[in-house]
Design a protein around this nucleic acid. Sequence first.
DNA 1: CTGGAGGATCTTTTT
DNA 2: GATCCTCCAG
Length: 742
Amino acid sequence: MIRDVNQIPDKTASGPFYLEALNPEQREAVVSLDGPVLVLAGAGTGKTRALTTRLAHLLATGRARPWEILAVTFTNKAAREMKLRIGALIGEAVEGMQWLGTFHAICVKILRRHAELVGLKPDFTILDTDDQIRLLKQLIKARNLDEKRWPARRLAGCIDNWKNRGLTPDKLKPEDAESFANGLGAQLYAEYQARLKTLNAVDFGDLLLECLRLFQNNPDVLESYQLRFAYMLVDEYQDTNVAQYLWLRLLAQRHKNVCCVGDDDQSIYGWRGAEVSNILRFETDFPGAKIIRLERNYRSTGHILAAASHLISHNDDRLGKTLHTMDEDGDKVVLKSVWDGEEEARGIADEIEALQQGGHSLNEIAILVRASFQMREFEERFLMRGLDYRVIGGPRFYERMEIRDAVAYLQLAANPDNDIKLERIINTPRRGIGAASVQLLARTARAQGVSMMNAARQLAGTDEIRGRARSSVRELVMNFDRWRGMIETTAHTKLAEIILDESGYTAMWQADKSAAAPGRLENLKELINAMGEFENLAEFLEHVALVMDTETNEQTDKINLMTMHAAKGLEFDTVFLPGWEEGLFPHQRALDETGKAGLEEERRLAYVCLTRAKKRAAVYYTANRRIHGLWQTALPSRFVSELPDDHVISDAGQGQAENYGVSRFDTAQFAAPKSFGHQKAKIIRTSYETAKKASDFQNGERVFHMKFGYGLIEAVEGNRLTIQFDTSGRKRVLDNYVERHP
DNA sequence: CTGGAGGATCTTTTT
DNA sequence: GATCCTCCAG
């Protein structure tokens, strides 16, 4: 949020009151209503304010009525917040904005209206990831593929990837299909899609793709939406994937009043299909687009902003922005070297206690980690000290096993033909219906073209299933028939209680002696509670499918603990950044799998983290870290050396670093750094060279690069080569991505 | 069909 | 080190 103290109202401002609180660039972003607009909004530059004001302005000036505006966000949280803030500006009229939501929510809305046109029934179900994996597992098994070598999880990843790129099975190129089971992936993908159709189901990726297909195959439908959406607005544009981009471009063709807001430096979701290039090519797609840069930062003090800006300047692939702050210099970014994770957690807990004693609120303190396993050490330490903390973006409520099971029961009561849900709960709790019986049900259902519930109803009366399985199947069918009959007559919360009770699901957890069981029972109670917020069962189930988080407006004072990714969009007075070590951050896997692009994304992550801090930022790195149960010597992250000396203060704690001698953990090449400041850069360079030897390429050599083709080396700096490529122009690449051309 | 033992695996995560 | 998953014996 913006600190109003720092907003410098422009004296020449005139017009509506809400424009007065904006700086000239923000105001430009608000009043440039016609034609395509790209707002490049740096971290902390009042993006959300500009964006919500723009929407309010559209409505207040009568340029558009609420239902003529399409406003898309990525998360439900962002959609909620936007709605709240527009409401604060314009009041009730915000309720009419029925097209404000996530990409997925908007697509569902459109798809339900035109389901038949894409071969679905309007009550199609939306699969969650569990269901998806289960289904894929069946398909892989049916092909007699080795499940170890080709896990369903990985196929799900591939399919997700393809869908993000807008690739339906028919558009898949052989080289794409190669990524799973030597090309079999393409066939499995096609089978999976066919299976979804017969189940009258879609997965998350399909919501976008099917909507896209609907538009492409039905020009009249497309036109009706193009006409309806007089103005379009997209938040976090740097996070859009290809499918979303195509969807937007199609809808914007008519009025071309599309406003995209984003920041290429904050693109941290490349690994799940986000294409920064969507920002880069905006001007090409929408000729005459107006580009507005928001570069006045209202969040961080001078040193923090300077450190972050300098760090991100190491990236080649960026549009380039220069952020300014009117704020004072403030504190320098603190750099701390510690022995290991334990000392790191202890040190941060100490700092937090000191801040707390100084009257600072814990709510204004955050710890941002690269990987979730790093959280444990902090949680243990905080519990020990009695410091309250909350984990942001941890395992989500609706993703918990017991909640998914319970929801599956409810979905099945609402729609007994939902085979996927039936398979999920048919033997949970254990009722003696094993794999063999389930197989039989599935086979019978398939043969007769009916749902498994119907097959179960038939088989319960024959001898094909024996013993306990048979009586259980019969009982289950009868139960569901009864529960279904109660939907109209019983309050949905009451019905949920009855179902969980009579099915034996509650009893299953009551009998469970594991430590997690009481918590699960609590969660089930909470689920019933949450259902009360909805009118009826159907409404609740639609919500569950799309909105995986629950709103929590917790007011108590707690330290915020989260991953770096979860921190995007948030801000805190004080931010602790532990674990800045090579391999952890930047993460080794990012480097291995996507090379330079991966490194730059990690660097953007560092930038996002630093710019979360308003007043204080502290970076920590350990000399030793235990990963997967093994102790490893850690090298300071290269990002540490990319922080500018002028804006950083090195602090070896209470001198602990000096007191440690060389330990059994130290390797010959690297001992824990003894002091910082001027020596910092040198130590790190040494470690680099041991880790990654200087290039043995020379100027004038001809080389080949996987992506850019053949080229001539023009310069060598360490392991970075500047190459003039024959067809792709001049690029700087790392030497391990090229090979000598004979 | 169920439960226990051994084995592989372990970044980030929204919808 | 911890957890989730698979396999196998009962």
